[in-house]
Amino acid sequence: MIADLSADEEKILNDVKIRLAKYGKERGQLIPILQMIQDKLAYLPHITMEMVAQHLDIPPSEVFGVATFYNQFRFNPPGRNPVKVCLGTACHVRGGDIILENFERKLEIKEGETTSDKEFSIERVACVGCCALAPVTLIGETVHGNMAPSKVEGLVMRVQIEKEMKEREKQKNESGQ
């Protein structure tokens, strides 16, 4: 739970500090500030909550209490390809939980976890609002409608292949130069 930030994150953190200074110091700013930080870092490292507490002059426990109350905030970094399985009512009626289970099985992680290579994470979301396409899954920002358990493997593979292709291209470019 100790701040253990990557070099990239350290860089972003400096940017966050500059932005933070522009926010007012009243309590009503707490949630907008947390949203800003999560927007930049994709999660709320503990050190940021201490920073916010200092900025607003409230105990860190208050920040923690508020942050842990809301679904939006997360405390560990998501994967590069966050898989969000919709479990809204329409998706449930059409077997959304089976889709979730298939992702869990394929990626060998549970909902709320991130794969060890940081490539994927799985989340459940309550209704992304495309009920007519149920069941629905988002990978990154892309919506995949009319999901079926047999499509799960293909989708995961597609992400992996795309990544490999990109890497190969990068290598090719590098060796070409």
Partner: peptide
């Protein structure tokens, strides 16, 4: 004036927390 302890998490998982104390 300001509570050093707080409720954390939500619903069934709510606890009293010492975060940052």
């Amino acid at each position: 004036g300001q509570p050093e302890i707080t409720f954390a998490r939500r619903g069934f998982n709510t606890v009293v927390s010492f975060f940052g104390t």
